[in-house]
Write a protein that binds this DNA or RNA. Structure first.
Lengths: 165, 165
DNA sequence: CCGTACATGTAACCCGTTACATGATTAA
DNA sequence: TTAATCATGTAACGGGTTACATGTACGG
């Protein structure tokens, strides 16, 4: 939300739409989560708001990021991202680095390449250890499929990373 | 947890280890989440437990799935799985179908193929609409990378699905 | 005897979804 | 005038992490 408000001041409703659209592909939030969080963030002085009137009397709260919020956001943006199968922070950071020529992209990609390569190596080692022959595969087919899925996931992630730039 | 207890009776500690190991690759849970949940599940009569003594006096609670729990688990296992970028229920179900010859696998795979193919089509259409030329790509590079990532993810998912059996 | 693993719990806190609740604006 | 969209909130509940808290068993 700090990242979105850093791009332009907007309302909770606007933020909700962003999550429904492109960002929602890999990070989701509903309006019932967004409105209370906006309040909490304002308490923490990361954002402020002004009220705008739409039509005759509909009050719309336009939230703006503060200097403190901007600092926190930038610290986050430049911090390393660990691997997490549920939420990919690296992708989210990439989303906010809109400028193609930003040298930060190369650094971040290199970092992720290393992490995912290490993960892939671990998974491949697990496969060799746990499924040395056909008999082990047949005895625990579900586990075998799932391990293959994780390997496939990491391999395609690596090929996507390598294709950046 | 019902799935794991359906395979064999075990303790909360054993369940924790399962999540730390192979299942944790795509679905995680900590012991501080597991112990209270076991109590709640016992209240709901999905599981029961017996106490086993290890060594001199260490009490170990062995949880067993009930008939009700087994029914609920099997209903879940045979229910369709929707797409969810955070938690892949289909993978989890596959994990519990250990028998390679189970005809259910083919049905589930076909279902997922359809869902992921539809998702891929939507994403590709979005890419054409939102990024018709190089200028649009340069203006919103972060969004472009993220969309490509989602497309890449779906394509590799489909190839993995097609490789099953 | 000492460190690692076994074993089980609670507390505080935020994440996230579904449902409940209300009302205004706008375009057909 | 009516339906879709804009706009903002709360409540209940369970998901999930980090930290706090305690004690036993076992192998070297």
């Amino acid at each position: 939300m700090l990242g979105l408000l850093n791009e332009r001041p907007q309302s909770g409703y606007d933020l909700t739409k962003s999550f429904d659209a492109d960002i929602g592909e890999f990070w989701n939030a509903n309006h019932s989560q967004i409105y209370p969080l906006l309040k909490r963030m304002e308490d923490q002085e990361l954002i402020t708001h002004k009220t705008s009137i739409v039509g005759q009397k509909l009050e719309k709260k336009i939230y703006l990021i503060t200097q403190l919020g901007t600092n926190i956001f930038k610290d986050w943006l430049h911090s390393p991202s660990i691997l997490d199968q549920a939420h990919d922070e690296f992708i989210l950071k990439l989303y906010f680095i809109s400028n193609r020529d930003n040298p930060q992209i190369k650094i971040m990609v290199a970092e992720q390449l290393q992490l995912h390569q290490a993960k892939l190596n671990t998974l491949k080692q697990q496969k060799i250890t746990k499924f040395p022959d056909q008999e082990h595969i047949n005895q625990d087919y579900g586990h075998f499929l799932v391990l293959n899925h994780a390997i496939n996931r990491e391999e395609s992630y690596l090929s996507w990373l390598n294709a950046i730039e």
